[in-house]
């Protein structure tokens, strides 16, 4: 018998999941992109669809060039759903498919979505992806689908969930043992695969977690935070 029934109301208050992305560490290797594809049953867009700009990457590496060749310098910025505390995508959804979870995730409920795509327009980060067609995977990729993640049908919006299946799994273990999720117990696929540890994930409500400590770094900023979206992701970048 467990102490509490609501996973999101553990002893010591709710969680608030967040991430820190250290741009000074990011090499743009795109391991996170691949890991995310494998973990989250992200459909294969194919050459034709990708050329139309419909490639789906819940996390993408944005490349920005500075200067002219040969003195060009490239900068990388992984962009994924910022899980905004005050998300522009949420109030515009007519069916509450896009909403906020009590543990600070910006959620997309696939089976509720009717596909009006307003959330996609209103997201300043353009990190919401739409299923233009019924998803498909070439052989043998269809054999490696993650059973813990829904395969999104045609006509629904999808986006980064901070690998909620892993969060919920850790929460259930913690709940069984009557404790909070420990720092580092949950790692989304992108964080797990990052070779330079540029990505760090954890509970922002825990002042001692790595995320909380890193986000207080004076290099920190939120992407487009001037819009008042209160993103849960802190980027770190040394300004030269």
């Amino acid at each position: 018998m467990v102490e509490y029934r609501d996973q999101n109301a553990p002893p010591g208050g709710p969680y608030r999941w967040g991430m820190v992305i250290d741009l000074d560490r990011c090499t743009g290797c795109e391991a996170c992109v691949v890991a995310c594809h494998a973990e989250n049953n992200i459909r294969i867009s194919g050459e034709e669809e990708a050329s139309k700009g419909r490639a789906v990457n819940w996390i993408r590496i944005e490349r920005y060039w500075e200067g002219e060749y040969p003195n060009a310098q490239v900068k990388f910025m992984p962009v994924l759903c910022q899980h905004c505390g005050s998300a522009p995508c949420e109030p515009v959804c007519p069916v509450y498919a896009s909403y906020h979870t009590p543990d600070g995730l910006n959620a997309q409920v696939y089976n509720r979505c009717v596909g009006v795509r307003y959330c996609g327009n209103n997201c300043p980060y353009t990190v919401r992806y739409f299923n233009w067609f019924e998803p498909h995977w070439d052989e043998p990729l269809n054999e490696q689908l993650n059973p813990d993640v829904t395969v999104r049908s045609v006509g629904v919006m999808e986006k980064c969930t901070f690998c909620v299946q892993r969060i919920r799994g850790a929460q259930q273990t913690a709940q069984k043992e009557g404790r909070r999720v420990k720092d580092g117990e949950v790692t989304p696929a992108c964080v797990q695969s990052c070779p330079t540890e540029a990505l760090v994930f954890g509970d922002r409500n825990d002042p001692n977690s790595r995320v909380s400590r890193l986000s207080k770094d004076d290099r920190g900023f939120g992407l487009l935070e001037e819009l008042g979206t209160e993103p849960s992701i802190t980027y770190l970048k040394r300004i030269k």
Partner: peptide, 15 residues
Amino acid sequence: KTGIGQSGLHPPIFW
């Protein structure tokens, strides 16, 4: 039958 992808839409132009 096939999906809304028959339109020319793609991110960021959803409408």
